[in-house]
């Protein structure tokens, strides 16, 4: 690598387009809504930048605290469920026969390539009142002659509630959890596991005392990779949650679309962004502590 002073012209020619685009079409828009979050609404389109914190204060009104809190616990629950499902899957892939491994990995990666909208839509067909789950249950119910005993089958309401939102986010983001877990389980030195088993520890003890601590970096990465997009999800609660299962992303969208309160929406987006950066900072800190321990 050479200093930019050696070929300043080449440096500037290569640096300029990307820097321009980043500053004008990404950082400037963010700066716009940051300023707007400190402003007040005057009339339908006019917004005065008054450096007020009222918009942020409004986010802590009970109505919104409730939605923010709900977004956080839904994201936390989703992350936990993803971890519970993804850990065995990642483990199985890491210990699979070499012939199978690439195919299993492909099986995990493939959903990433499929549009999130399409995947969410696919779930609507599964969960709706006349959907596959209810259809299958009805078939089973009738096959067991339960309709003769208890009357006709009552379909479950699986859509437009918190259950649908949690199931949808788990479904869409689960692959995000598998990959970092797989990477750290794959790196695991298997002789440690053998040593632990040889020295008389049970499989369960070996897992909790050796495997789990050693794969912690993958667990942390996976948690961050699922928690952040889950917290900011908008499409899934919008399509699967209906009006009574909204998350912070839906409230933000509403401020910019139908409610037309841009300063408040801007404040909420920045709160979401601060939360995201906070989560990333935690990961950086944990990664930093680990590397300093190694040194």
């Amino acid at each position: 690598m050479e200093s930019w002073r050696k070929h300043p012209l080449v440096f500037w020619v290569f640096a300029l387009p990307g820097t321009f685009w980043l500053f004008v079409f990404f950082l400037a828009p963010l700066a716009f809504i940051w300023l707007m979050s400190l402003g007040e609404k005057r009339g339908i389109v006019d917004i005065d930048i008054t450096w007020t914190l009222a918009n942020y204060a409004r986010a802590f009104e009970p109505v919104y605290v409730k939605i923010i809190w709900k977004s956080v616990w839904i994201s936390a629950l989703v992350t936990l469920l993803c971890l519970l499902i993804a850990y065995p899957v990642a483990f199985a892939i890491a210990f699979a026969r070499p012939r199978w491994k690439p195919w299993m990995l492909l099986g995990v990666i493939l959903p990433f390539w499929i549009n999130m909208l399409v995947r969410t839509y696919a779930l609507i067909a599964v969960f709706r009142t006349r959907g596959y789950v209810n259809f299958g249950l009805e078939w089973l119910y009738n096959a067991l002659w339960l309709d003769k005993l208890f009357g006709p089958f009552e379909p479950f309401t699986l859509l437009y509630n918190n259950f649908a939102v949690v199931a949808g986010i788990v479904y869409v983001y689960m692959p995000f959890m598998v990959l970092p877990l797989y990477a750290s389980i794959e790196k695991l030195d298997r002789s440690y596991l053998e040593a632990s088993l040889d020295l008389g520890a049970s499989q369960a003890r070996t897992f909790w005392k050796v495997t789990w601590p050693l794969t912690m970096p993958g667990v942390v990465s996976g948690i961050i990779l699922v928690f952040i997009p889950a917290l900011g999800s908008f499409l899934i609660p919008d399509l699967l949650g209906g009006t009574n299962a909204q998350m912070i992303g839906n409230v933000i969208a509403r401020q910019f679309k139908s409610a037309n309160d841009w300063p408040f929406g801007a404040a909420l987006s920045f709160l979401l962004m601060y939360a995201t950066f906070g989560a990333l900072a935690i990961r950086a800190l944990m990664a930093g502590r680990k590397s300093s321990m190694e040194v």
Binding site: P29, L30, F32, I33, I252, A253, S269, L272, L280
Partner: peptide
């Protein structure tokens, strides 16, 4: 790396306002 990590919804509304 910011455009990769910023939540989509934030980037979306920022673009709309911009």
């Amino acid at each position: 790396a910011l455009p990769i990590v910023v939540p989509e919804i934030c980037m979306g509304v920022a673009m709309m306002v911009f």
